[in-house]
Nucleic acid binder design. Structure first.
Lengths: 224, 224
DNA sequence: GCGGATCTTGATGAATCCTTGATGCCGCCC
DNA sequence: GGGCGGCATCAAGGATTCATCAAGATCCGC
C-alpha cells in the first residue's frame, strides 16, 4: 500500500485530503505540525509526503531540510504564497513539486501520480561487503561467490536490520519487534531458528560464524 | 553541459529564455513548433525539455505523448491555461512539471534545477537483451528469435517496470500500484496471472523461468 | 450491434514458508 | 560432577503463497 504523509494545520483541508486520498487507494497518515511530521516520517517512512509550508511550530522549509537530511522520499509542497521567491526556496531545499492554494484535487492527484512514477527508479546503491558474501540493500539481493542466495522474507528482514547497523549490537527485543512485531518480544526461539538459517546460507563455516555473531543473553551483531 | 530544448512559438519569450538559460550554463536549442521539436529531440537528445502547450502546428499534449513514446527526458510544460483539467492532462501524458504563464524566470530556473536533480542517473539503455528475448523500451517492442512478440498493455507495463530495474527486486505493492493504481495493492492474484502470461510468451521454459523470477512473499525480479 | 481481444475472478494442486517442539551442546554456578 | 539456562540444530505440521487453468465480464474497433 502506498503511504502518504500529509502535513497541514488546517483541519478542514486535512480532512478533505484524507478522505480523497483514501478513496484513491492511498494509506494516509496526517500530522498537524512540523515536529509531529518528522516523528511520523521517522517511525513509519511514507512513500510520498505532502507538506504545507505554513505550519504553527516551525518553518516549512526547515521541516523539509531536516527531512532531507535522512530521507529521499518525494515531497510535494503546498503553499498559500504565489511569490516566486518562496517557490525557489522550497524547490532548492529539496522539494520535488510545488503547488499553490487553492488547488484542484484532481490536479493534486495527477501530480502525486507523476511523483510516484519517478520515485521507482531511485537506485539506492548501498552495498555492504564481507569476505564471504555481499548484500545489496537497494536491489534486495545477496550474493556469495558470485551466486545468488535466496532468502525468505523473514530472513531478509533480520539480515537487513543487522547489516544496516554494522558492528552494532542489536538486542533480541529490537530484532523481534522489528521483524515480528512488538507482541513477539519473548519468542527468542525464532531468532535462533532464523539465525541458524542465515548462517547456513551465508557463513563459510556455519558452526564458527565470523560475521553474524551471537552475544549470549543480549542479542546479535553483524561484523563486515 | 546540460542541453535544454525550448519549444515555444513566441519569439520574444524564446529569446528571453535562450539568453537567460545560456547565462546559467545551459546549452540551449530552440524549436518553434511541434514537428521541429520532435526532430530536434530525436537528432540531439536534450537533458531537459521546456514545452509550451500552445503550438501552431499540433497540440502540445500530442507532442509530449509522441516524445514520451521513445524518450524519458524530463519535460517541463508551459501553459497559458490555469485550468486544472489541462494540468491533469499534461501530467498524465508524461510531463514532469507544469508552470503557468506568466512566470518568474527565477522560478523557472529553480524548477529546472529540481528536475535535473531527479534525473541524475540517466544513462538509460533503451535496449535490454537476454539470451531468450530482447526488449526495446523506446519502441515498446519485444522480440524473440527475431519474431515480434505481441504484448497486451498490462503485460507491457509490468514488463517495463521490471526491465527498467534489472536485478532489482520489485515488491508486489510497487508493481500493483504502478500498473493498476494504489487501490489495488492487495490484488496479488493479478500478478500471478500476468506473470504467467509473460513467462509463457518470453521464457524458453515457462515452468522454470530464468529471467522473470519470483521472490516468494515479496515480489518479482528481472535478470538479464 | 458484433466479434475478438483483453481484463477480471474463482478454483485447484503444488511449492514455499512459518511455526513449534524435541534433542543435544556448551559454559556457568551451585 | 550434576543441574541449569541459553544456544544451535533438526524435522514435521500447518498455514500461506504461488502457478495454472478456465470461465465470465468488459472493453474496443469495425
Amino acid at each position: 500500500m502506498t503511504g502518504v504523509l500529509v502535513v497541514d494545520d488546517d483541519p478542514y483541508l486535512l480532512r478533505a485530503l484524507r478522505i480523497t486520498l483514501r478513496a484513491h487507494g492511498y494509506d494516509v497518515t496526517v500530522a498537524e505540525d512540523g515536529r509531529a511530521a518528522l516523528l511520523a516520517a521517522a517511525r513509519t517512512p511514507p512513500s510520498l509526503v505532502i507538506l504545507d509550508l505554513g505550519l504553527p511550530d516551525m518553518d516549512g522549509v526547515a521541516v523539509l531540510a531536516t527531512l532531507r537530511s535522512w530521507s529521499q522520499v518525494p515531497v510535494l509542497v503546498l503553499s498559500a504564497r504565489h511569490g516566486s521567491a518562496d517557490k525557489v526556496q522550497a524547490l532548492d531545499a529539496g522539494a520535488d513539486d510545488y503547488i499553490t492554494k487553492p488547488f484542484g484535487l484532481d490536479e493534486l492527484l495527477a501530480r502525486l501520480r507523476a511523483l510516484r512514477r519517478r520515485s521507482l527508479d531511485d537506485a539506492e546503491p548501498t552495498l555492504v561487503t564481507t569476505d564471504a558474501f555481499t548484500v545489496d540493500l537497494g536491489k534486495r539481493r545477496v550474493t556469495r561467490d558470485g551466486e545468488d542466495i535466496r532468502l525468505t522474507p523473514t530472513e531478509w528482514k533480520m539480515l537487513e536490520i543487522l547489516v544496516r547497523n554494522p558492528e552494532k549490537l542489536i538486542t533480541q527485543q529490537q530484532l523481534l519487534s522489528e521483524v515480528w512485531g512488538p507482541a513477539y518480544a519473548k519468542e527468542t526461539n525464532y531468532l535462533r531458528v532464523y539465525m541458524a538459517q542465515l548462517r547456513r546460507k551465508l557463513e563459510p563455516d556455519a558452526g564458527a560464524p565470523r560475521h553474524l555473531l551471537t552475544e549470549a543473553g543480549i542479542g546479535y551483531r553483524f561484523m563486515p
